[in-house]
Design a protein around this nucleic acid. Structure first.
Lengths: 204, 204
DNA sequence: TATAAAAAAGACTTATTGGTCTGTTTACAA
DNA sequence: TTGTAAACAGACCAATAAGTCTTTTTTATA
C-alpha cells in the first residue's frame, strides 16, 4: 500500500516539475537532468518510472495539461446561464492570472503545438484532443445560450468558438512580451464589444 | 567587387536556409550542421561569415523576418482607402498562403517569441520591434479610416489593433493542427462581422 | 603569372544529451 | 530479524551540439 503511494508521489513530483520546465524552456530545450537536478533525484529514479522522455511527456499531458486546460477554460463556463458573461469572466480571470505570473510563457497548448508540429505527430494528437474539448464546450455553451435567450439565433456558434479560441491564443502569446495590463484591458474591451454584437437584441 | 558579391551571396544563402529550418524545427532544435548540410557548406564557411549562432540569427531577423512581416502584413494595407476591406483582404491572402503551404508552422514572430522568451532578452527585443511596426501601421490605418469616413469615430483604434493582432496570431497557431480551410472560413466570417460593427454607420 | 588575401574545408575540442547498466538503499512481509 | 522486491544512485556510453584551428582552394590584382 505504502509502496504504491511512494511510486505515485515520485512520479507526480517528476511530472509537476517536468511540466514546469517544459513550459518555461520548451520540451527539447529541457534536459531530463534539469528536472532531476531540481528534485535531487537521479537518472535511475527517472527511468525506473518512465520508459523515455516522450513517454514521460505524454503522461504529463494526460495527467496535468488536460486538467489544467479543463479547470481554467472549460469548468468556469459550464452551467453558467449567460455564455457571454461567463466566457468574458473566464478569460478575464485567466489573463489576470497570466499577468501576475512572472513565469508566464503563453498558453500551454499553443506553445507545445508549435514545438511539436512536424516532429511528433503522436504527441500532436493529444494536444488536438484537448483543444477539441475546449471547442466543443464553447460551442455547446453558446448553443445553450441561444435556447436561454442570451445569444442571437443567427450566430454561428462554431465560428464564434473558433474566433474566441484564436483571439485567446493570440493575446496570451502577445502578453509574453510584456505590457500585460494594457493588452488585457484592450483585449477585454473589444471582446465585450464583440459579444454585445452577438447578443440577443430582443431580450436586451 | 566580385569578392563582395560572393560574400553576400553565401551569407544570403545561409540566412535563407537558416530561417527556413529555424522556422520549421525551432531555433534550438536546428543545428548549424543541419543548415550547412543542406547547402553543402562547411563549418569553416559559416564561422568565416558569422560570429556565432545567435549573431547569425539576429542577422536573419534584420534581413529577412522584418521584410517578410512588412511585406505580408503592412504593405498590403498601406495607402488603401477603406481599412476594414484592406485588412480583411490582407489577412485572407495571408491565411490562404499558409493554408496552401504544407510546411507552414504558424506565424513566424509568435513562434520565435515563444521560444526565446526568458532565454534571450536581446533577441526578444528585435521581435517586439517588428510587432510594434505592425501595430503602429494598423492603428494609423484605422485612424485614417476615421477621417475618410470608413471607421466609426468612437472606435478605439489601439484596442482594435491589439484585438486584430491577437486573433491573427491565434488563428495562425490553430491552423498548424490542420483543418485550415474550415478554420480560415470561420475566422474570416467573424472578422468581417466584427468589422461591420466598427464601421461608420452614417456613410454605410 | 605570381601572390596575397578572401573563402571554404574539415578534423578536432569540449560540453551536453537521452538512455543503459550495475550496484546500493529502503521498505514491507514472513 | 531476514529475505525480497521496489526504489533509487550514479558511473558510463554513444550521439550530437557549438565553436576553434589549421590547412587548402579561389579569386582578384599587380
Amino acid at each position: 500500500m505504502e509502496k504504491k503511494m511512494k511510486r505515485m508521489a515520485t512520479m507526480h513530483r517528476l511530472q509537476v516539475t517536468g511540466l514546469e520546465l517544459f513550459y518555461q524552456q520548451g520540451y527539447y530545450n529541457t534536459s531530463i537532468d534539469d528536472i532531476l537536478g531540481k528534485l535531487s533525484l537521479s537518472k535511475g529514479a527517472f527511468y525506473y518510472h518512465f520508459q523515455s522522455k516522450d513517454d514521460f511527456f505524454i503522461s504529463i499531458i494526460q495527467n496535468l495539461v488536460v486538467q489544467k486546460v479543463y479547470g481554467t477554460l472549460v469548468q468556469p463556463i459550464e452551467g453558467k446561464e449567460d455564455p457571454f458573461t461567463a466566457i468574458a469572466q473566464c478569460f478575464e480571470v485567466s489573463l489576470e492570472t497570466a499577468e501576475h505570473n512572472e513565469l508566464d510563457r503563453g498558453f500551454v497548448l499553443s506553445n507545445f503545438m508549435a514545438e511539436f508540429k512536424g516532429k511528433n505527430p503522436e504527441i500532436m494528437e493529444y494536444f488536438k484532443d484537448v483543444l477539441k474539448v475546449w471547442e466543443v464546450n464553447l460551442i455547446s455553451s453558446l448553443q445553450k445560450g441561444k435556447s436561454d435567450g442570451y445569444v442571437d439565433r443567427h450566430v454561428d456558434s462554431s465560428a464564434v468558438a473558433t474566433y474566441l479560441i484564436s483571439s485567446y491564443i493570440g493575446i496570451r502569446a502577445l502578453m509574453v512580451e510584456g505590457n500585460c495590463r494594457t493588452l488585457r484591458y484592450k483585449y477585454m474591451m473589444q471582446l465585450r464589444h464583440y459579444f454585445k454584437m452577438l447578443a440577443n437584441k430582443e431580450t436586451a
